[in-house]
Design a protein around this nucleic acid. Sequence first.
DNA 1: AGGTCGTGTGTAATCGATTACATGCATCAG
DNA 2: CTGATGCATGTAATCGATTACACACGACCT
Lengths: 342, 342
Amino acid sequence: MVTSKKAPTIQDVARHAKVSAATVSRVLSNPERVSEATRERVHKAVSDTGYTINQAARSLRMRAAKTILIALPDIGNPFYSTVLDAVVDEAAVRGYSLLVANRFAGDPSRLLSDYFLSSRADGLILLDGGVDTTLLQALATGDGHVPMVVSFDEAPKADVAAVLIDNLEAAERATEHLVALGHTKIGHIIGPSRNAAPNPRFVGFKNVMARAKLELRPEWLFPGTYAMDSGLAAAEAFLALPERPTAVFSANDEMAIGFVAALRNAGLECPRDISVIGFDDIAIARHFWPPLTTMHHPREQIGRLATESLIDILEGAATPGAPRRITLRADLVVRGSTRSLR
Amino acid sequence: MVTSKKAPTIQDVARHAKVSAATVSRVLSNPERVSEATRERVHKAVSDTGYTINQAARSLRMRAAKTILIALPDIGNPFYSTVLDAVVDEAAVRGYSLLVANRFAGDPSRLLSDYFLSSRADGLILLDGGVDTTLLQALATGDGHVPMVVSFDEAPKADVAAVLIDNLEAAERATEHLVALGHTKIGHIIGPSRNAAPNPRFVGFKNVMARAKLELRPEWLFPGTYAMDSGLAAAEAFLALPERPTAVFSANDEMAIGFVAALRNAGLECPRDISVIGFDDIAIARHFWPPLTTMHHPREQIGRLATESLIDILEGAATPGAPRRITLRADLVVRGSTRSLR
DNA sequence: AGGTCGTGTGTAATCGATTACATGCATCAG
DNA sequence: CTGATGCATGTAATCGATTACACACGACCT
């Protein structure tokens, strides 16, 4: 075992200031209940001893760890790590520590026992859309009653606080951008669907195609997983086509990038031969060649608002009743991968 | 406040199994000290009640939180988030939770008081090379005695356990690759230097240039910060050159990518007009156009080994005496951004 | 003078798990 | 039959912070 000099306790401070531990505690949490003179003596004792509160003891007594847990499907994915960045920041500002759980793959009950029943964390930010809706519901309102805020693509039906973008509507605007450029032959790389619901970005795409009375050919629809590889696969299918679309809306940037890169290998230039719009505006999108036109996903803001909402819930500052749902706007960012046909 | 049904305690289990709390505790941590029959009854009681240990209470009593802290300069950076990914994984396997601190910018004393004196975390994985060496030394061996493992580019002089690659040696091999391809006019995009020491990748570059008796022109050395933007800046300086190198070694991939992208905008093609080798092998490197030749930084392995080492130290399994230092090899990955001059 | 009230502080119980020590009981040697 | 030995289990102290309650003391009123 590693030895370390024992950290000073509240008792040490009390002795130093010649008061009781209770008074020290009060100075630290209810200063107004202590006389000016004592307060000063205690503060001096605190800095003299270098006292830092023992969180384990505090958690035990208060039944609150001042810690939140973020559960994500894949930290290594820049998309999630940007959200995480904002969450860490905001949590620190509010005095909370942040625990991270990764790839717990649809086993929310392990989260419950590992983190909440064992009172390691007070609340949960859930970024994994792969969690079954009924499990989610149970986690949020069942026995454990885990306070939580979710954020992922498929709007959950569950009765839970959420911070989201309107994927369907944003996908409509992405598609409209292509239509506005004069494209009539438009394909789509479809994102995966969760919980048996159709991918909302796909739905948005179909809506606009229908409204614009454009033909929606089945062979122009490429199934994908959001991974870059499905972009490559889509490119292969695309190249084999007898008649090709002039534009493609990819359900995310990774697939768009894979798609464009694979086409370039085959001699097709973007945007000369094909316009491509992505979705999410990941960091590389701007530095890719050509710079990718895409829908900006406000990840940073999502992380920040999710954290704020969760802590508001934890501290009772949230309005009771229906859980709050915040919907953010994803803005179109026109760069170099789409061009007008006119 | 949020109300939630109280989690069962060890007392509840004890009552259920008709034994004392001490026995339940023993079944859970020293099963061999309890008779077969009682052990079974307790196990049944545990699953009947759905008991989960209260970590706050355990931490208080044991003076150990079963939690490690990882401090990084920038979670959003894919480089770090890949390490983080491995760390989360490995920590979970060993039964540890993971706290994350981001951008604490050279204020290690705040880490000490916020996480260690307050006994929120038992050990530290430090990925931020920006920490002053003497502060680091103090943190590792001073009053608080924070058990830790570091990993960052500049080999710390501090007497601390570390998991690293040999940056200098790897930079030599990167440069040798360009030399072997027949390049004689070679430039370098220099990484930032920390703690007044020259960047080791720069040193490696200079070593090989000297050994190969190649001219090292000052105007072919471009200062950078590791951010993509410095690649753009380097490209501008490059384009203004009266005589240009035929190959460039960039101290990391981000700058290499920015460099290549900016050159392409100016009509220069890589590798036709210039060969570029990066360093780190970040995820995009393989999907960039052209696919980037680079040195593979074994981030995943670093995260895994750093976590293992730390937990070994925490659990007393580490060999006492000098802190262990593990040096990994960074392999050359030849892709499409470098070509032979012959 | 006696009582009421308010302010400031201390005492002690509490949160839940661990563990040194005590105890009870069975076994076995002499 | 007695006492030593060892195993299984219980009792109670402990970790450090919080807080209900008690108490002491002074101010003020009638």
